[in-house]
Design a protein around this nucleic acid. Sequence first.
DNA 1: CTGAATCCTACCGGATACTG
DNA 2: CAGTATCCGGTAGGATTCAG
Lengths: 123, 123
Amino acid sequence: MLIPDAYSADCPTRQVLDRVADKWAVLLLGLLSREPMRFNRLRRTVEGLSQKVLAQTLRSLERDGLVTRSVFPTVPVTVEYAITPLGMTLAQTVDQLRIWAETHMPEVAACQRRYDAARAEAA
Amino acid sequence: MLIPDAYSADCPTRQVLDRVADKWAVLLLGLLSREPMRFNRLRRTVEGLSQKVLAQTLRSLERDGLVTRSVFPTVPVTVEYAITPLGMTLAQTVDQLRIWAETHMPEVAACQRRYDAARAEAA
DNA sequence: CTGAATCCTACCGGATACTG
DNA sequence: CAGTATCCGGTAGGATTCAG
C-alpha cells in the first residue's frame, strides 16, 4: 500500500507521518475544523492535554500552515486559532480514521479480550 | 468534524487514535498490506526501527487483531506476520494519509520555511 | 487570558547480551 | 531466526511559577 521509499528515513512521506502521528494534533485539528477557538477553550475541551503541550502543538500546526493564530489587542489579550483551507483538507482525511474507529472499535476490543484471555490462560 | 465525546479521556475513539498515532504501526501495516513478511525482513526494511520496538509494535498489532503471527516449526524457527481482513480495512484508510502527504507535502514545507523565516527575522 | 521559563521525573527506546 | 532481559541515557511532558 505504502510506497517503498516511505521506509527510508529521509522520505518526505515519513516526515508528514511524523506530524500526523500526533494524537493531540489530530484532536485539535478536528476541533478547529468545526469552529475557531481560543486557547483556554481548547485546553478545557481536550481532556488530559496540558497547557504546555497544547502550546507546542498549536505552534507546530501553525508552522505547518494547518491553523492560523490571530491576536486581538483586547484586555486581557484574546488569541483565536482557526483552521486553514490546507488544514481542512487534512482534517477531512483524518476524519476517515474516526469513522473507521467508530465502525471497528468493537471488533478491536473483542480481539484484545481474546488475546489477553489466551495469554492469561497460558500463564 | 470529530464528535464531542472524542475529547474525553475514556472515549473509544481516542483509544483507537492512540494506536493509529503510532508511526511504526502505520508503516508496518502498510508493508504487510502488500505481502506477509518475517521478523528480520521487516526489521531490515523499516529504517530506524529497532528490534525491540518492532517486537512491541507487532505484539500490539496482533493483540488488536490487525495482524496474525504464524510460527512454522522449521530449524531455525520461522515466524511470519500477515495482515488480517480487519487490518486491511485500516491500512486502506491510513493509506489516504499517504496520498494526502504526497499531495500537500510541498505546500506544508513552504509554510514551514515561511514561518521559520518570519521568526528568524523577528529575532 | 495566553503564554514562556524552569525544574524535575517517568518512561521510551537504544545498545548489548543471552536463549530456544 | 526470532525474540526476551537488562541496563541506561535522553527527552517528552507534568507541575509550578512568572510575565505581557
